[in-house]
């Protein structure tokens, strides 16, 4: 039973890791790529490491720590990357609907330097 759950989680995670990579390949600009990259790889890595823990119950604490670490740090690094790319002047995709970021002087200030 545990083995079945473990393999299911591993394949679930592998599928989403692949989808995240495909999203990075297909989406048109930095911010959309960041969306696909962050969400899919976080859930994929989380589910793969917990699945390995189910296959070897003695390893479960350490894989749990790895999963927790990924869950906590991945959104932070994506947030830092998105903010840095906006401030360094990367343009949005031309079909984007709205850009409220221009209204804040903290965002555009460094672009003009």
């Amino acid at each position: 039973m545990l083995t079945a759950i473990g393999w299911f989680l591993i394949y679930f995670g592998a599928f989403f890791l692949f989808l995240g990579a495909l999203g990075i390949m297909r989406f048109p600009d930095v911010y959309n790529r960041l969306q696909a990259g962050t969400k899919c790889t976080t859930l994929g890595a989380l589910s793969t490491s917990i699945g390995v823990g189910f296959l070897h119950p003695a390893w479960l604490p350490k894989t749990f720590i790895i999963a927790l670490f990924i869950l906590l740090t991945n959104p932070i690094s994506s947030h830092a990357l998105g903010r840095a790319s906006y401030r360094s002047g990367v343009k949005l995709w031309e079909k984007s609907v709205v850009d409220k970021c221009k209204e804040f002087k903290e965002c555009v200030e460094e672009e003009n330097e």
Binding site: L22, K95, S96, K100
Partner: peptide
């Protein structure tokens, strides 16, 4: 995200 990636036309309307 999986739906948006696998759909051939990519139904996205991004914005900030």
């Amino acid at each position: 995200v999986a739906y948006r990636v696998l759909h051939p036309k990519m139904p996205i309307r991004p914005g900030i």
